[in-house]
């Protein structure tokens, strides 16, 4: 069976961004998403945009992949831009055409907010473009590790995440296989009234659910047979390590934050 089906957006590579520890990436993105909202001037946006574009080029991910992530959000960006363009009445009147009046304030605010969306989407998609979902899970488990003290089930959640990620491709293939099998027996998913098509989904869902429960049972038995008993003392196949590169990136990011706060209210 072909298990190499790629899910998610991950683009394999060996760039600086790929090699960073996933914890570093998550921490930086977390703070980036917060500091974006502090930008309020031309130069502060310039600092953040520079960092965003620098990360994008450093990741060596083809631009079309980044753009693909932005596609569904274009509507929203254009919509908010236009909203601000027509509603904001600050500054000098630029254009007047029947009932439409465009002011400088509207243009500036529209651009600023579109820029903010662009940066947010860019930086968050860079994470999923350069990090495998399983690495993200490992990193989140490590980051949330201290919560174990307050009985938060960090290990169990990470385990469930890994299992989910492992089974998505399998379930996709199985759905495909069973829908083909049922189609060959004459089930029609594509034509006829909606009611009939909904009914046609049942012979697909029943075997899928039954086999999913069976898989769960088998996996549980297999894990217990191998002595699984929770998170205590469990070792890892993939160990995360903070390298010199990570430290340099942290320093760079701190410079970006300082730069942002120095240029706030400027220009």
């Amino acid at each position: 069976m072909n298990n190499t089906l790629i899910i998610g957006q991950y683009v394999p590579g060996n760039s600086v961004v790929h090699r960073l520890d996933p914890r570093t990436k998550i921490t930086i993105i977390f703070f980036f998403v917060i500091i974006v909202f502090f930008a309020n001037s031309f130069w502060s946006y310039a600092v953040l945009t520079l960092f965003g574009l620098l990360s994008m080029f450093a990741s060596k991910v083809p631009i079309r992949f980044v753009m693909k992530g932005l596609m569904p959000i274009w509507f929203l960006i254009v919509f908010t831009f236009l909203l601000h363009l027509f509603i904001n009445k600050d500054g000098i009147l630029l254009l007047e055409w029947s009932f439409i009046k465009i002011y400088t304030g509207g243009v500036i605010q529209g651009i600023a907010i579109s820029m903010r969306f662009f940066l947010l989407i860019l930086i968050t998609s860079l994470l999923t473009l350069t990090t495998t979902p399983i690495a993200i899970t490992d990193a989140v488990e490590q980051i949330l590790h201290p919560l174990k003290k307050i009985k938060f089930p960090v290990h169990e959640l990470a385990l469930m995440m890994s299992i989910s990620l492992r089974f998505i491709p399998t379930l996709l293939q199985e759905t495909d296989k069973i829908s083909k099998a049922q189609a060959s027996r004459g089930v029609d998913f594509r034509t006829g009234p909606v009611k009939e098509r909904l009914k046609a989904v049942i012979p697909l869902l029943v075997p899928l659910f039954v086999s999913a429960f069976k898989r769960a049972e088998e996996l549980a038995m297999a894990m217990e047979a191998r002595g699984y008993q929770g998170g205590e003392g469990r070792t890892k196949l993939r160990e995360l390590k903070i390298s010199k590169l990570d430290i340099w990136i942290y320093i760079l990011f701190i410079c970006v934050i300082i730069g942002l706060f120095l240029t706030r209210n400027y220009g």
């Binding site: 469930m160 995440m161 299992i163 989910s164 899928l208 894990m223």
Partner: peptide, 13 residues
């Protein structure tokens, strides 16, 4: 354990 795995597999589903 089995319930945990069922939860995970169905989220994947």
């Amino acid at each position: 354990l089995q319930t945990l795995i069922e939860i995970a597999i169905f989220a994947a589903f």
